[in-house]
Structure formats: structure tokens, C-alpha cells
């Protein structure tokens, strides 16, 4: 059993203690917020990587990505070869009035053409201006931060391993070309490390 009224005193103490602490108010327009890594501000398009596969537009839950393209053919690289056709991007637009920032388009893009940018100050007075066209989406690309560093104990990214393997193979080939005979013990060991 505690003293009668001790709860009342405790209540007063809590508010008094809070008054002496620093406030938590974010003074946003005066002071920019410190955003956490991987903040979802706006979607940027790295159009050089886009192959117009349309996966992003088809996976988008609210259909806010508009893509137009046409086919172009390139003449055969070697005489007698086959003509190659590829898609050329005409229009890529995201309507941020519809976008719900789920990030599925970025997840689904197989060619790393879409990225999250932490920029969030792009409010407009006209809703139509919220449809960002290709050049604007490309501009956002400059605001995309570097990918965060891996954890110290993380396994090596696949891209790195693939590139390393390719480099080793090339080196091995070069070595084989230089000296045809003899065991290749050091190369074997290097390959074992890579696997």
C-alpha cells in the first residue's frame, strides 16, 4: 500500500521531468529532416537501363506507370547476319497522384532501371503536374544515394562473384596461352576460393 496521493505526485513529477527534457518537435520547413536510409521519396528512372519490358507497368497495383515505345531494327553486325530488333522508349511517366509508393515496380525491374530517391518536396498546385515525365524521372536519378554498405558479415553480392569468376577465367585462359604444359595448382586454389 502506497501513501494516498502518491499517484498524484507521480503525475506531477512526470510532467515536470518532461519539461526539462529536450523537445521532440521537428521544425521541418526550417530544418530539413534526417531521413533514414532507403527512404521512399520519389521514384527515379535510369532510362539507359530500361528495355521497355513493361514489367513495372504491369505489376503496378494502381496502374500509374505509362510506357510508350516503338521497335527499331539494327542492320546485321556482320555481312550475311540477321537483323536485330530492339525496343526504343518513347514515353515513361509515373503519375505520383496515383502512386502509393509500394515500390513493386522497383522490386520487379530486372535491369535496375528504377530506384528510390529520398527527395519528397515535389508537391504541386495542379494535380496534373504530379505526372512526372521521362526527363523529370531521369533528373531524379541524380538524387539517388549510393546503395548502403553491406553488413560486415554479409555474403558477397552475386554480381561481384560473377564478375570475379569471369575475370579469373580470362586470366586462366591467358595463362594457358602463355605456358601450355605444367600443373595449374595456384589457379585451382583461386577457383576453389571463388566457389
Amino acid at each position: 500500500m502506497s501513501l494516498p496521493g502518491s499517484g498524484l505526485a507521480k503525475g506531477l513529477a512526470v510532467t515536470l521531468r518532461t519539461m526539462t527534457r529536450r523537445t521532440v518537435t521537428a521544425q521541418y520547413p526550417d530544418v530539413q529532416p534526417e531521413l533514414p536510409p532507403r527512404s521512399r521519396g520519389v521514384i527515379a528512372l535510369f532510362e539507359e537501363n530500361c528495355t521497355v519490358c513493361m514489367l513495372c507497368a504491369r505489376e503496378c497495383p494502381d496502374w500509374c506507370i505509362y510506357i510508350d515505345s516503338h521497335k527499331e531494327t539494327t542492320p546485321p553486325a556482320t555481312p550475311g547476319g540477321r537483323e536485330r530488333s530492339h525496343n526504343v522508349l518513347d514515353r515513361f511517366a509515373i503519375d505520383f497522384a496515383l502512386c502509393m509508393y509500394c515500390g513493386i515496380c522497383i522490386e520487379v525491374c530486372p535491369f535496375d532501371a528504377l530506384f528510390w530517391s529520398p527527395e519528397f518536396e515535389y508537391a504541386e498546385t495542379d494535380i496534373r503536374d504530379l505526372t512526372h515525365e521521362r526527363d523529370k524521372l531521369r533528373e531524379w536519378m541524380w538524387t539517388v544515394p549510393e546503395p548502403p554498405a553491406l553488413d560486415p558479415a554479409a555474403e558477397e553480392p552475386k554480381e561481384l562473384a560473377t564478375a570475379q569468376k569471369a575475370a579469373e577465367k580470362a586470366a586462366q585462359k591467358a595463362a594457358e596461352g602463355a605456358q601450355d604444359a605444367g600443373p595449374q595448382a595456384p589457379d585451382d586454389r583461386a577457383e576453389g576460393d571463388g566457389a
Binding site: T15, L16, T18, M19, R21, T23, V24, T25, Q27
Partner: peptide
């Protein structure tokens, strides 16, 4: 001001 700071806010600024 007092009420704001007792609630961890800044109050009118």
C-alpha cells in the same frame, strides 16, 4: 509554452 514543453513540444514558434 509550459504546456507544450511538458508534452515534449515547442509550442508557438
Amino acid at each position: 509554452k509550459v504546456m507544450a514543453h511538458m508534452q515534449g513540444r515547442l509550442g508557438p514558434m
